[in-house]
Amino acid sequence: MNAQSRPASKIGLLSEPSRTEIDREIAKYPPDRKQAAVMAALRIAQEQNGGWLPADLIEAVAEYIDMPAIAVHEVATFYTMYDLKPVGRHKVCVCTNISCLLNGSSRIMNHLETRLGIKPGETSAGGKFTLKEVECLGACGGAPMMMVDKTYHEHLTPEKVDEILDKLE
């Protein structure tokens, strides 16, 4: 393959701090298993990009960790922690798995939909909130629960949800 037919490298889309952080994740695995860092690499790239992963950034991650782009895209589309379109300044993820469901997560989701004026997968006018329905967040003992940005909130009631939202910029 000559230089003109070779696709341009996308690694430059990853910032230097992001590449350094990805390298730290890669170092946790044997040299021939650096692809095991794919989830961490996607998280780092998403954080670098304001909370979402455009296709070219997914391809940059794939190139950086020597994986086929389609395989990295499959990871990014399988897990709800990754977003493939722009998100609001605050991402509100409500667990709707069995423990949370049995303890009232549908009531919490309905309250959030009304309060924010959006459905799961949507972003509010002005871009303040993105609402997501997610599977297990691993805090079944605190059901119903949600994660706002990187903070867990457990034993939710509509009133507690309002208090949490009111404190956000």
Rank of each mutant, 00 (worst) to 15 (best):
N2E: 02
A3F: 08
Q4G: 02
R6A: 12
R6E: 13
A8N: 09
I11N: 00
I11D: 08
G12K: 12
L13C: 05
E16K: 13
E16T: 08
S18Y: 03
S18N: 02
T20M: 11
T20P: 03
E21N: 01
E21M: 04
I22P: 05
E25K: 10
E25N: 02
I26G: 04
P30S: 08
D32M: 03
K34D: 04
K34G: 08
K34W: 06
A37M: 11
A37I: 06
A40S: 04
A40D: 10
R43C: 02
R43I: 00
I44Q: 00
I44W: 05
N49L: 11
N49H: 13
G51I: 07
W52R: 07
E59I: 01
V61K: 01
M67R: 12
M67V: 13
P68Y: 14
P68N: 12
A69N: 08
E74A: 09
F78W: 13
Y82D: 00
D83M: 01
K85M: 07
V87L: 11
G88V: 15
R89G: 07
V92G: 08
V92P: 11
C93T: 09
V94Q: 12
T96R: 14
N97M: 11
I98A: 04
I98T: 14
C100Y: 14
C100F: 15
L101V: 13
L102E: 14
L102Y: 15
G104K: 07
R107Q: 11
N110E: 14
H111C: 01
H111L: 02
L112A: 09
S124N: 09
S124G: 07
G126N: 15
G127N: 15
K128E: 12
L131Q: 12
E133F: 13
V134F: 14
C136Q: 01
G138P: 05
G138M: 06
A139S: 02
A139G: 04
G142D: 14
A143E: 08
P144Y: 11
P144C: 04
M145T: 07
M145E: 14
M146I: 02
V148K: 14
T151C: 04
E154Q: 13
L156D: 11
L156K: 09
T157V: 02
K160R: 01
V161H: 10
D162C: 03
E163K: 11
E163A: 05
I164A: 05
L168A: 10
E169C: 04
